[in-house]
Design a protein around this nucleic acid. Sequence first.
DNA 1: CCCTTTCGCATACCATCGGTATGCGAAAGA
DNA 2: TCTTTCGCATACCGATGGTATGCGAAAGGG
Lengths: 196, 196
Amino acid sequence: MRNEGVRARQREETRRALVRAARGLFAERGYGAVGLAEIVAAAQVTKGALYHHFANKADLFRAVLDEVQHEVGGQVAEAAEAHNDPWTRLTAGCEEFLAAATDPRRQRIMLVDGPAVLGWSEWRAMDEAASARHLAEALTELAEAGVIARQPIPPLVHLLSGAMNEAALWLATAPPNGALADTQAALGRMLRSLRT
Amino acid sequence: MRNEGVRARQREETRRALVRAARGLFAERGYGAVGLAEIVAAAQVTKGALYHHFANKADLFRAVLDEVQHEVGGQVAEAAEAHNDPWTRLTAGCEEFLAAATDPRRQRIMLVDGPAVLGWSEWRAMDEAASARHLAEALTELAEAGVIARQPIPPLVHLLSGAMNEAALWLATAPPNGALADTQAALGRMLRSLRT
DNA sequence: CCCTTTCGCATACCATCGGTATGCGAAAGA
DNA sequence: TCTTTCGCATACCGATGGTATGCGAAAGGG
């Protein structure tokens, strides 16, 4: 599988360069304010290369978003798996998500431009596959174990996911002192209220 | 103040026509997919008129967003003021918000394109002024009265506001049967958990 | 009542942007 | 070595957001 000729290697290299360049620019100035000319210049290729790898600008953004979301999802999963108790896994995962999503290099792409560029449905589906899945699984496990009240899980997932997304955006821009601690405390109380 | 000459009246009329036309198109197909040519055609004016009233496309969108947000804020305030008990005011306001924000003619403008077009900070500031203010006031009142635990209010406002925004988006597109009721129930439990 | 000024808006124009068509050179296969 | 494939560069196009200019009618002053 490794090193299937110099051709495939170069291909992947330019693709990565494009995604990397686009990600940096999108994160800094937003999808709408970045032109394709700028992206290909930063990646040191041409528009021909871009359109050889991606169908259009939104498709390139999709690749960037996918990368960011899987980074965050992986980070959350890693933090959660460090614990054995299902309840601690949930709270640790939530706290890790708050931290991961507050990173300004991810926030704009993942939480602001994502839904607008790809449409909310597609954005939601990608988020579900990359990270919200973990939240749903954790809640289901806890409900089945009787730790939290038995109830429909999807509404809970959306309420909590939306709460954390908005909180992350707020924490990144308007930080009264101790806001992070206060928010984690409030979120913790909300989660604890689910327990039977 | 009324009828300050035919000139001011015509001015307001064209401005309204532009906002109205833009709102319809933005709601239906999204900010990015609608061109200025289309907007001015629908409003039966020209680009000259548009740029006489608004600085640019984003500025026109801001006027549309402002209108939508104040509609929702007014609707929420009205529903809340119908009750005297502060706690009931909160829950009624939240339920009304969920209903108002689920309207597809408002949703895309208010919750998806808004943050992306104007930037999250400005969007947040506008939302705060138009509707989230009511949530903050209700929570502050309840905290001071000792109905809910004394705690920092801003984190709570953002968590709850984000939760309701995401829930509204979800309810508008992926409606398993009874999803609205389940969501309102889950939200109600979250709110109730704040009580002392 | 006329003359001047203001101003709301239409027309014409421009730069830039996303997107496409075509061609070339080097790697892969026979 | 000859042919085919393919990754990408070059050149080009229509459309879009934005600007500069001009005009006609309403407002204001004498």
